[in-house]
């Protein structure tokens, strides 16, 4: 009887689970990229030591700033050499054309533009001693909007899937109410209480929801064990990003499993409750 409903709950919640885990990982990838966001303030070669120290102290005093690193011309060159080892470009370099810079890390990456603009005066020119400020304006805006959009889309898809499952359970319970309508009629006529009539259907809904969720969790567990872990290690290897959901901590996976079970039970109880409200009027 409830086979269709159980299967549907299982498949839907499985999709919800996979989807949530993927979205969670996308979010954590994006978050770690966000954390990398920094402002590079390139200094003019002729900057005085006083001005340099003044700037460094000033930047350190801003509350948004987490850390400031001074990179001297020499360090910059070494870095450049290390990054381009073996390349012909190194032979072309004469002297040291690279500028010294401050690398600023922020506590909240969303404030990057606000901070960067402090190096520009009212007329739109850079302040004294500063040659150029780089913080990847458009790229950062996109990144932030991607983070927000993926979150919203994920939530929408999950809500739609859950609603679809509810409609299916609702229909199953409605069918089983229909199949037992004569029994219910007699129950009502001889004075069974409303809860006595409702309880078996609510129980049926709860059972279908929980069983479906259980199957979904089992499938997720298997998938996680045999597929996702490998896939994610690949991502980590290529993108050098840590703290992914499944690998990072098993607590989050357990939480997801627990959440799916709870959602399954709720879906079952609520949808049979709705079906009863409309069709029993006891």
């Amino acid at each position: 009887m409830g086979f269709t409903a159980i299967t549907t709950v299982a498949i839907t919640l499985f999709i919800v689970g996979v989807f949530s885990i993927i979205v969670f990982d996308i979010q954590s990838v994006l978050n770690s990229i966000e954390k990398e966001v920094e402002i590079a303030v390139y200094l003019k070669d002729n900057i005085s030591n006083d001005l340099k120290t003044y700037l460094e102290n000033e930047i350190k005093s801003w509350p948004e700033v987490e850390s400031v690193d001074y990179v001297s011309k020499e360090q910059a060159l070494e870095k450049f050499k290390a990054q381009n080892e073996g390349s012909d470009i190194l032979k072309e370099i004469q002297g040291n054309p690279l500028p010294a810079s401050f690398e600023i890390k922020l506590k909240d990456p969303q404030k990057v533009e606000q901070v960067a603009l402090r190096f520009v005066d009212k007329d739109g020119k850079n302040i004294d001693g500063v040659d150029e400020v780089i913080y990847g304006k458009s790229y950062i805006r996109k990144l932030f909007s991607i983070t927000a959009v993926t979150g919203t889309i994920a939530l929408l898809v999950i809500i739609i899937l859950v609603l679809a499952t509810m409609v299916l359970i609702y229909n199953t319970i409605r069918l089983s109410i229909y199949a037992r309508r004569k029994e219910i009629e007699v129950m009502k006529l001889v004075g069974a209480t409303n809860w006595y009539v409702r309880a078996p259907f609510l129980f049926e809904g709860l059972f279908e929801g929980l069983l479906g969720a259980g199957i979904a969790v089992t499938m997720l567990y298997l998938l996680n064990k045999f597929l996702l872990v490998k896939g994610e290690s690949a991502i980590i290897d290529t993108m050098h990003i840590k703290n992914l959901a499944i690998l990072g901590s098993s607590n989050i996976v357990m939480l997801a499993y627990f959440g799916i079970i709870i959602i399954g039970g709720l879906i079952g109880i609520l949808s049979s409750g709705f079906a009863l409200r409309r069709y029993l009027k006891v």
């Binding site: 009502k188 006529l189 001889v190 004075g191 069974a192 209480t193 409303n194 006891v282």
Partner: peptide
């Protein structure tokens, strides 16, 4: 009240 109807019907 609707939750008292069963009691009525038992009589």
């Amino acid at each position: 009240k609707s939750n008292k109807i069963p009691q009525l019907r038992r009589n």
